[in-house]
Design a protein around this nucleic acid. Structure first.
Length: 883
RNA sequence: GCUCGGUUAGCUCAGUUGGUUAGAGUGCUUCCUUGACAUGGAAGAGGUCAGAGGUUCGAAUCCUCUAUCGAGCACCA
């Protein structure tokens, strides 16, 4: 097998993408001998194209799926897309606009046809991109939130809710987007600070010369005022509660009411109450039985409440009304005022609270259960800090406005019996899962379906079970029983309420079980300055370009490495570059091992012989423990960094370098011995890395095993007591210390890295003699020493440099004359280092409380350290004096 | 306003239950094309762990307050 010197990601990746798909590596069937582990993908919008958020979200899920699969679970990761309601309709509407048309020109039926056609053309883009990313999804199970199965689930759910009396229709104050022309739920409104004005208006009190001044940001709604409210505790207004006001411009009489919701500190402490256009006012109106007068209509224009302003936009009406108030002397003053204004989360248009006939879902019971599930840890959050916001939100939830006045989506499955003129009859609405053909009450065949569609999140909320055909077959559904509840839900926090909380509600409602036991919440990907990526800022990093430039494994590793649960990550080309280099490092380490292996027959089990073998197996074993644990609690970042450190620092920088002695040996058995360890550890390591960097790992796996089977079909390494070598680990630390000290001298004294040198080691600590006796070959090899002698009472010769390790003095005779000044400076520096260390220990030990109260072992440890530093300093000072 | 999270090297971040001379990557400096890798190797410089109190023999780690950044929620007449 030819391996190129530089890892060629593109060549390798394409091959494995096809392999995994063609071999159905990730397809899953019910297998009751195995436990299932399921993830349902957060379905990206059909209109979408892969961005960094997807890349992060999906490579994390892929890592988890691959890890669990290698652990022996029957894993299933279900792919799919979301129809994306308003967002998608907006996209197609924009396309129409380019042709100079509106959806009304086409009509509902033709428009929906166009939507489907467009979906057909573009809908698979993002799925293809997920394939390129290497995602181990079961492609035969690809779902769409508006396909048959999901549609049936939606209808079944709606009917069950309806029959239980949880769904009702009514005219309520709702959030209305005048641009999208639809109602929105409370969480679909985003609040942004905006500069505006606060107008102070005089409201004359009837039968008196007095006025009550109100402050408002929305003077245009005053013509719909049906009261003025003050706080019952407000001394200023105590005597006027119950009195009547003559509404300026309108002349209508309204009452002054007392309500605790009014903040005495704000404005004048008197609030004009416009129930039809403000949530708080609406509440006040309900408490005081106030009349509700609509001022603004669904288009954002003034109603006919007052002829003068009829048909004006709310914005124009505001100017006109302020002008009129001013003219008639009612306006006292205008202040600049900054406040939060609700915006449509899909188009950014200012939300208009209006009265509107809508469908609502009562959520109180469901919310209680969903909240309790988290409180009982049946649904666990990673990180746990998201539990509180989640429960808090659920505990204070109001009914969910589920109807939307758009065309793209699940049409509400409610039918009305109508007469020949199309007017609704007195028969009750018909709610059936199957489309009814006649009215069950009167037999009439003239039926019309409700015009509204459901909130897109309604169908998303059922995703974890609708994908398993719950809509068609809710009971005795083997797949549902086997795969549900799923193992983990992976998402960013921005859809915790919109989606996650609702899935838990619906899962408990319809399946009487949570939809997933774990929720893994990752951060969002920001640019290198910490800013959110957005098209308008122009700081978007396209993952497809990164894949092209650095390789998909590099992209995945870079993301995984910074994906600490719950924390946002700043990412730049540097991260991808480092990850690409890492891939190359693994590639070349493998290439080196294979080159040496050649045609040799190597034992599958590691043949343990030397110190370094035991050391690396010990390290490898610890790595297994750490990585497994990290994957299990979704610390993918920890798993990544642990593997990076093990592979690069431990395996490559130390073990491979140490293995070169035996590799170069004439003795074939020796070579085979060290190769058995090298290959054993490398194979285990790429298994651990495979969930994160699947391409290169599968490629190497196939090369090493001369197999075509994917690495995900092998089993994840398991921690093994037989590889625990604590003594060898500390011996190796001694070797490493000596090597580092010698290298330091070499570097500081400008000894050529190519030169082989002589070194003499004076042993001060008898306990460490064995290390030199057994392992001096390592030191010679790594520190480039041709002649190494050691023993007790070895003295420094003239013209040698000194290095001090714990328990050793190392003398390095220099060619020619030693540069005295340089050596003095070097030793002085070292003395200072050790002195500062010594000072710390002295301070500790001179504290009687420390000696008395600290654990004995800790005191002993510090005493030993102090002794070490003292001996080092003595050696260094002596040498300095002799120079 | 309330709640939560962050603040550690120039930059990006680690730091498990309090006890290592506070670590890594990147950038910087010096040296090196040595037969896996220059997408590499070796060495080095660089940090009052945001600040102030407190608990403790001992605090980057625990507690309180402050500053600052961010998120969520509420209010915004």
């Amino acid at each position: 097998m030819e391996m190129e010197k530089v890892y060629d990601a593109k060549k390798v990746e394409e091959k494995w993408v096809n392999y995994w798909i063609n071999n159905k590596t990730f397809s899953s069937k019910i297998d009751k001998t195995k436990k299932s582990f399921t993830i349902v993908i957060p379905p990206p919008n059909v209109t979408g194209s892969l961005h960094m958020g997807h890349a992060l979200n999906d490579s994390l899920q892929d890592a988890i799926i691959r890890f669990k699969k290698m652990q022996g679970f029957n894993t299933l990761w279900v792919p799919g897309t979301d129809h994306g309601g308003i967002a998608t309709q907006n996209v197609v509407e924009k396309l129409l606009k380019k042709e100079g048309k509106t959806k009304y020109d086409l009509g509902r039926e033709k428009f929906i046809e166009k939507m489907w056609q467009w979906r057909q053309e573009t809908g698979d883009t993002i799925l293809d991109q997920l394939k390129k990313l290497g995602c181990g999804l079961d492609w035969d199970r690809t779902r769409f939130t508006m396909d048959e199965a999901c549609s049936k689930a939606v209808k079944r759910a709606f009917k069950q809710f309806y029959d239980k009396g949880l769904i009702y229709r009514g005219k309520r104050l709702v959030n209305w987007c005048p641009r999208c022309n639809t109602a929105l739920s409370d969480i679909e409104v985003e609040y942004h600070p905006e500069k505006g004005n606060l107008w102070y208006i005089k409201y004359p009190i009837k039968d008196s010369n007095e006025f009550l001044t109100v402050a408002t940001t929305r003077p245009e709604t005053m013509i719909g005022d049906t009261a003025v409210a003050v706080n019952p505790n407000d001394e200023r207004y105590k005597n006027i509660v119950g009195k009547t006001i003559i509404l300026p411009l309108v002349g209508r009489e309204i009452k002054i009411v007392a309500d605790y919701i009014v903040d005495m500190q704000f404005g004048t402490g008197a609030v004009k109450v416009t129930p039809a256009h403000d949530a708080v006012d609406y509440e006040i109106a309900r408490r005081h039985n106030l009349e509700i007068l609509e001022v603004i209509d669904a288009n954002g224009n003034m109603t006919g409440l007052m002829e003068k302003y009829k048909g004006m936009s709310a914005k124009d009406a505001r100017e006109q009304i302020v002008a009129d108030l001013q003219e008639q002397g009612y306006l006292i003053k205008t202040e600049d005022y900054s406040h939060s204004v609700g915006k449509c989360y899909r188009c950014g248009t200012t939300i208009e609270p209006i009265m509107s006939e809508q469908w609502f879902l009562k959520v109180e019971e469901m919310s209680k259960r969903a909240s309790q599930a988290a409180k009982d840890e049946k649904v666990k959050f990673y990180p746990a800090s998201w539990k509180k916001p989640y429960t808090l939100w659920l505990d204070n939830l109001r009914d969910w406005c589920i109807s939307r006045q758009i065309w793209w989506g699940h049409r509400i499955p409610v039918y009305y019996c109508v007469d020949e003129k199309g007017n609704k009859t007195n028969c009750p609405p018909i709610v059936e899962q199957e489309t009814p053909t006649k009215c069950p009450h009167c037999g009439n065949t003239h039926l019309v379906q409700d015009n509204d569609v459901l909130d897109t999140w309604f169908s998303s909320a059922m995703w974890p079970f609708s994908v398993f055909n719950w809509g068609e077959n809710p009971d005795n559904n083997e797949e549902l029983k086997y795969y549900y509840p799923t193992g983990v839900l992976v998402t960013g926090h921005e859809i915790l309420y919109l989606w996650v909380a609702r899935m838990v509600q619906m899962g408990l409602e319809f399946l009487n079980d949570i939809p997933f036991s774990d929720v893994f919440i990752h951060g969002i990907v920001r640019d290198k300055h910490g800013l959110k990526m957005s098209k308008s800022k122009g700081n978007v990093i396209n993952p497809l370009e990164i894949m092209d430039q650095f390789g998909t494994d590099a992209l995945r590793f870079a993301l995984a490495q910074s994906a600490a649960p719950g924390r946002d990550m700043q990412i730049s080309n540097d991260s991808f570059l480092a990850a690409r280099n890492f891939a190359n490092k693994i590639w070349n380490a493998s290439r080196f091992i294979l080159m040496n292996k050649g045609e040799l027959d190597i034992s599958d089990e590691p043949i343990v012989k030397e110190l370094s073998d035991k050391w690396i197996l010990n390290e490898y074993n610890q790595t297994i423990k750490a990585v497994t644990r990290a994957f299990e609690v979704y610390d993918i970042d920890v798993a990544s960094r642990t593997l990076y450190d093990f592979i690069w620092t431990k395996f490559c920088d130390w073990y491979i370098e140490l293995s070169k002695i035996r590799m170069n040996s004439e003795n074939v058995e020796e070579k085979k011995q060290v190769l058995s360890v090298l290959i054993y550890v490398l194979k285990g390591t790429i298994k651990m890395l495979a969930p994160i960097m699947p391409f290169i790992c599968d490629e190497l796996w196939s090369i090493f095993n001369n197999t075509t089977d994917s690495i995900v079909n092998s089993s994840f390494p398991v921690y093994d007591e037989k590889f625990v070598f604590a003594d060898e680990a500390s011996q190796m630390a001694v070797v490493q210390e000596i090597v580092s000290k010698i290298r330091n001298v070499r570097s500081e004294m400008n000894i050529s890295p190519a030169a082989f040198i002589t070194a003499k080691i004076n042993i001060l600590d008898d306990k460490k003699t064995s290390v030199l006796e057994n392992d001096s070959e390592y030191i010679k090899s790594l520190a480039k020493i041709k002649d190494l002698s050691f023993g007790k009472d070895i003295k420094r010769e003239k013209n040698s440099a000194l290095a001090v390790a714990t328990g050793f003095e190392i003398f390095i005779p220099l060619e020619g004359l030693i540069d005295l000044e340089k050596e003095k400076a070097r030793i002085n520096k070292e003395i200072n280092n050790v002195l500062s260390e010594q000072e710390k220990y002295n301070k500790k030990l001179s504290n009687p409380n420390f000696v008395a109260k600290a654990p004995e072992a800790e005191v002993a440890r510090i005493k030993q350290k102090l002794a070490d530093t003292e001996s080092k300093i003595a050696t260094l000072k002596e040498t300095l004096n002799n120079l």
